[in-house]
Design a protein around this nucleic acid. Structure first.
Lengths: 239, 239
DNA sequence: CTTAACAGGTCAACGGTGTTGTCATAAGGT
DNA sequence: ACCTTATGACAACACCGTTGACCTGTTAAG
């Protein structure tokens, strides 16, 4: 039986498509990202990707067994790009804040990939590099191993979770997204104080707050609490 | 022009389908939830839902203009179910912790449905009730309006985001979930200290931590930081 | 009661989607 | 120069959401 997908190293024959394009895992991932960036997340389908590449859709299955695997590869490439653009300063709190915001922004830019990759472990090179980097920031910042791992875990999961959540909103059809804004304005903005006193009292704040992602706030709360714990640990060990 | 969707109150003629079922908004939502719980979120499509109901798929468009509207109705029903099981005590921190953990547990109990509802604003009764309730807990706890809204927003989003994230893991096919565990054990558990010193140094903690959800930790960090801010506010106003 | 209006169920079709079995051919090792 | 076979192409399958046209039972008015 011929294996459908051959690992990249084992690929020898580089047969061009009818339109003269030489396919590769890299080219496919790059083109997928370009498609997403140019025409939105919903523009990415196997068939469109094939068309954009100048290849039959079914050819892609020689490189990725399922669409899922393609998305994981896209996700890992995203992690890589985010990491490459990041410039650590040596201040753990500032560095983590910067990295978190970058990852979140990256997720929003590629909603479908973010949604898929949030709950998957790719085990690919860039992901591994990210784990090593973040753990390094925390341990170099003075966190003991157990605490460093705990903060790492919540930091990463929170970033991925918010990334996926906010991505999902972004990926909504325009019509639905406008409907949501309308709901906040008309429904929540007009609840009477008699039946819903708390919403009525805070309505202006509420409408303003709901226009943005709460990820930055969540990130700051996390970093604040982490710093408090670091101070506690240092106090105990007499640092 | 005949309106495609008639509001529930205006419905008079209850004509049964060919297979003898009398449709209604309620029946459709209930059946959708049943389908999701039994066969997963991806099993919910207009056509399958029609089949499960014993009706032509196009009939559903007499009740919901788009699939989206149906999803919102499903989401609100879920919020209602979760909220009904919660018992507040009057201590804001304990109550929020309890509510957060309940919502998270509820999400895990209905993984496929949770994934659907996490990122939508329904503007329906149960959701409104939830907003009012949580804001009440915070304001009664002493938070000024702006701060209450900020904490509310991060609390809700964090809970929904982690609920969706952890649900997605739970909903993975067994094969895929085992593969992920394998990646942690073999790939991350065996990285050499020469190339990945931080991962190698913390590997035991890492493998242990990754077995559980980080939501409780994230929630505690959030509540801790919130309490610190409340104390700061009270100090300023001389409470 | 009869009857006419029309809400609401049905049918068929459109243009999309992911995926797979089969075939053909050019690349590359021998 | 030949043979193997990797890899691209094709066609088909089973889905999907949505819509316009049609049909029919229910119901309210006369």
């Amino acid at each position: 039986m011929t294996e459908r997908v051959v690992p990249p190293d084992a690929r020898r024959r580089r047969r061009p498509t009818k339109q003269g394009v030489v396919l590769s895992e890299e080219l496919i991932v790059e083109t997928a990202l370009r498609l997403i960036e140019e025409h939105g997340a919903e523009a990415l389908s196997v068939r469109r990707l094939g068309r954009a590449l100048g290849a039959d859709p079914s050819s892609l299955y020689r490189y990725f067994r399922r669409t899922d695997d393609l998305m994981l590869a896209v996700a890992d490439e995203l992690i890589g790009r985010t990491l490459r653009a990041w410039r650590p300063t040596g201040d753990w709190r500032a560095d983590l804040r910067d990295l978190g915001l970058s990852m979140h922004a990256g997720a929003l830019a590629h909603p479908r990939a973010a949604t898929l990759s949030a709950y998957r472990v790719t085990g690919r090179v860039h992901e591994i590099q990210a784990v090593e980097t973040i753990l390094g920031v925390l341990r170099d910042g003075g966190f003991p191993d157990a605490e460093a791992v705990r903060i790492y875990h919540t930091f990463v999961d929170q970033t991925l979770a918010f990334g996926a959540l906010d991505s999902a909103s972004v990926a909504l059809p325009d019509q639905a997204r406008e409907a949501e804004a309308e709901v906040w304005r008309t429904t929540y903005g007009r609840l009477p104080a008699t039946t819903h006193p708390h919403v009525a009292a805070t309505a202006p704040h509420l409408l303003e707050s709901m226009r943005h992602s709460s990820y930055p706030a969540a990130l700051d709360l996390l970093l604040e609490a982490a710093e408090a714990r670091l101070a506690a640990v240092r106090g105990r060990t007499g640092g």
